[in-house]
Design a binder for these strands. Structure first.
Lengths: 210, 210
DNA sequence: GACCTTCTCACCTACGTGTTAAGC
DNA sequence: TCGCTTAACACGTAGGTGAGAAGG
C-alpha cells in the first residue's frame, strides 16, 4: 500500500550530492593521449587543474573537501616506441596522502556558489615534511584523482564522509619528464605559464604542413 | 560562604579571548609620524600588514574573523606646512564595509595555531561592486582598524559576536598620495615590494650626513 | 648503453610598489 | 593657482613553465 514507505527509501544526503568535473573537453584531449603529470622534489602543479562543481549539499552545514589519488592499476609503466606499456612490479600501493581544499572548512552554500579549483596542489616524488600542499606519488605509476566531501557535525570534532567521487577521465601517469611529445605540445598550447614555448611549438605545428 | 559562587562570576568566553597586535614596534614608528594609507580605485594593500595573534578560543568551535575600520574622529584632515591639521566637515560617517579573513570560517585551533595576517585586504576610495576583498574609505579621513571574532553556532546560521578588538596604534589617514615624505621613506625601507625605490631612498638618507 | 632523475636556466604570468605627469 | 586624484610607468616580488645538460 502507499503507506508502506520505509525510512530507508528516503534518499540519503550522499545520494543527493553531485560532484561534477569541469572542463571535460580539455581533460578528454589529454586522456585520449594517456595523460602525464610531472612530479618534482619541491612539487609541481597539475595541468589541467582539477575543477569540480558541487550540488545537493546542505547550504547551512559545514563541509571539508579533499583531493587524493588512488593507484589506477597494479603495475609500473614504461614509454617504449611511442607507447605506454606495462612493465615491472609496482611500488607498494599505499593510498596517497590527502590534499585539503584551501577553502575548507566551509558552508555548503560556499562550495555550491562556484566551481572549486585545486590549482595549488603540488605533486612530488619525495617525502617533504613541511608543507601540506604536496602529495607524494611514484613516478611511472598511473593514478586516478578522487574528491571527497566530508561533513562536519555540530558536536566537537565529529566528521562523516558523505561522498567520494572518482574521476576516471583525469587519470595520468606520474613522470619526472614528459615522454609523449604530443602531451608536451598540448600542455604548452593550453597552460598560460608555458607561453614562453608557444612560438617554438607553433613552428613545429607548421612543419607538419606541406 | 565558599558555596555562594554565582554563575555570573564565571568568566564569559569573551573575557577569555585575546586578540593581540603583532609587530608593534613597526606600527609604532608609523603611528608616531601619523600613519597614511593609500587608497586607489582598484584597491591598495595596507602596509604595514595587520597581523594579530588570538588566544582563548574554543579549539573545537568554529569562528569567523573580520576586519573593519571605524572613523577615528569627526573631521576631515589637511596636510599643511608639514603637519596634519583638522579641516572641513567630514563625509557622513557610515561604518566601513567588512573584510572577512580568507581562512574563515575555521576552528578555534586553526586561528590560534599562528598569527593571522590581513595582507590581502585592499583599501579603495570608489564603490567597486564585484570583489569582497575591498574596503571603501574616504580620503583625508582618519580610521581605526578593528578585528571581530564571531562564533558560529551548531544550529543553522546561528552567529554571535564574541569579541571586538580595536587597535589604536594602527590608526591612519587615508590618502590618494603620500603627504608626509617621512611616511614614504618608512614604507620604502620596510615594504619588500617597494625595493625598486630603496637605492634612491638610501642616497637621500646619506644627504643628511656631513 | 639505456633509462630515469635532477638541476639550472630563460621566459613567462601575476601583481605589489612609489614616481611622475596629466587631469580636474 | 592650489589641492587632490588619476593613469601610465619602470622596477620590483613571487613563483609557474618546459628545455637541455648533467648526474646516477
Amino acid at each position: 500500500s502507499p503507506l508502506d514507505i520505509k525510512i530507508e527509501d528516503a534518499p540519503s544526503e550522499a545520494d543527493q550530492i553531485e560532484v561534477k568535473l569541469e572542463e571535460e573537453p580539455l581533460w578528454n584531449k589529454f586522456s585520449n593521449l594517456t595523460n602525464e603529470m610531472i612530479v618534482t622534489k619541491n612539487g609541481r602543479r597539475m595541468f589541467p587543474v582539477m575543477k569540480v562543481r558541487t550540488k545537493g549539499l546542505d547550504e547551512n552545514a559545514m563541509y571539508t573537501v579533499l583531493l587524493d589519488f588512488t593507484a589506477a592499476d597494479n603495475h609500473r609503466w614504461k614509454y617504449v616506441n611511442g607507447e605506454w606499456v606495462p612493465g615491472g612490479k609496482p611500488e607498494p600501493q599505499v593510498p596517497s596522502s590527502v590534499y585539503m581544499h584551501p577553502d575548507s572548512p566551509n558552508f555548503g552554500s560556499h562550495w555550491m556558489k562556484q566551481p572549486l579549483s585545486f590549482s595549488k596542489v603540488k605533486l612530488t616524488n619525495k617525502l617533504n615534511q613541511h608543507n601540506g600542499q604536496q602529495i607524494m606519488l611514484h613516478s611511472l605509476h598511473k593514478y586516478e584523482p578522487r574528491v571527497h566531501i566530508i561533513k562536519i557535525g555540530g558536536t566537537a570534532g565529529a566528521q562523516e564522509f558523505v561522498k567520494t567521487q572518482p574521476f576516471p577521465m583525469t587519470r595520468f601517469i606520474a613522470v619526472t619528464a614528459y615522454q609523449n611529445e604530443e602531451i608536451t605540445s598540448l600542455k604548452i598550447r593550453h597552460n598560460p605559464f608555458a607561453k614562453a614555448f608557444l612560438d617554438a611549438e607553433q613552428r613545429k605545428q607548421n612543419d607538419y604542413l606541406p
